[in-house]
Design a protein around this nucleic acid. Sequence first.
DNA 1: TGTCATAACGAACATTCGTTAGGCAAATAT
DNA 2: ATATTTGCCTAACGAATGTTCGTTATGACA
Lengths: 191, 191
Amino acid sequence: MFVMTERKQEILTIAQGLFKDNSYTATSIRDIAKAAGVEPASLYSHISGKEELLDMTCFRMADKFINGIAEVNDIYFDAAQKLKMAVNTHVEILTSNLNAAVVFQRDWRHLSPDRKKEFVDARNSYEHGFRVIVQNGIDEGLFNEVDIKFAALTILSSLNWIVEWYHEDGKLTPQEIAENLYNFILTGLKK
Amino acid sequence: MFVMTERKQEILTIAQGLFKDNSYTATSIRDIAKAAGVEPASLYSHISGKEELLDMTCFRMADKFINGIAEVNDIYFDAAQKLKMAVNTHVEILTSNLNAAVVFQRDWRHLSPDRKKEFVDARNSYEHGFRVIVQNGIDEGLFNEVDIKFAALTILSSLNWIVEWYHEDGKLTPQEIAENLYNFILTGLKK
DNA sequence: TGTCATAACGAACATTCGTTAGGCAAATAT
DNA sequence: ATATTTGCCTAACGAATGTTCGTTATGACA
């Protein structure tokens, strides 16, 4: 049976911090142990192995995203409002779980083959949620008739990259970032 | 003295293909040797070490980008035209060096500290090139008065992410991708 | 024919990797 | 008070890591 003790959560958080700076593969069990103030072998009282730390990180984040987009798409709004909400939620999830978000984006490739497949499926279903919004917008006559798949990918691109430069004590709050991004996506640069 | 033989280029290309699929840290010298049809020790007749492969990949790409943006900013055009050219060039570089581009984006973190600093400087100067274009656009009255740094980052985000989904035999040609991206950046989704 | 550079080889190096085994003290449950 | 669980320890495992070593076959050039 799966349990999640306080100490295990602590270790996970520590690991995510290291993974963020050094990547999953370049971070060793010994690095994590040292950061946790414990001998390497002691970690195995809490986790089944290194990959569990990666697995939990990736799939917990995936859950957050999928729940977020489902919530948005369940509400009866027009596409512009939905998009605004989706952007807000996405930025919120990224910025309030920054370390995990970085791992989620960079290191899912190192999941075991089976779990990697599941992960990619999950990510695809999230992207699908965005495609639905874009399609709605076109149907409602609000959005230009763009390539839906391409548009969804481009939107997500601009959202995802913020983990590369966002700092908690930066100039912009997550709310402001989301607002700027939404405006950018909706109206572009042109005056 | 630095030399670049045909065989060395071959090995570099092979390594980039592996790095792309498996990341730099998770690719071993033995993996590269096997893919090159050679014993691990033989690689050292051509390269000084594993990091040289990463180093060459990152800085060759950086050079391409920096030369590209310099060319664009040297020409006397309005900001919209400059942006279009910059997007074109960027997409061209990414798509015609896909493996190297992926490594360039993901694995520069594993450069030695000194080289990493140089790399970040180079990348910053490239981003600066984009900020200049945005600033020009605002000065010329063509662009909205957005946060310049934020805008440049968002533009580059949407450009960079294409390495995650682009396939040579995909539906869209690099030219079409660049065009779509330019339109998206300039005018957004809104009808 | 003799000299030298090139590109490869097999073997081994020290180190690091993730993980397991077994024990021990303190906290917790019965 | 006794039994059990928890959380950590030391020690060690086999495998994989990047790299160095001395050697050798090949071919160009003097």
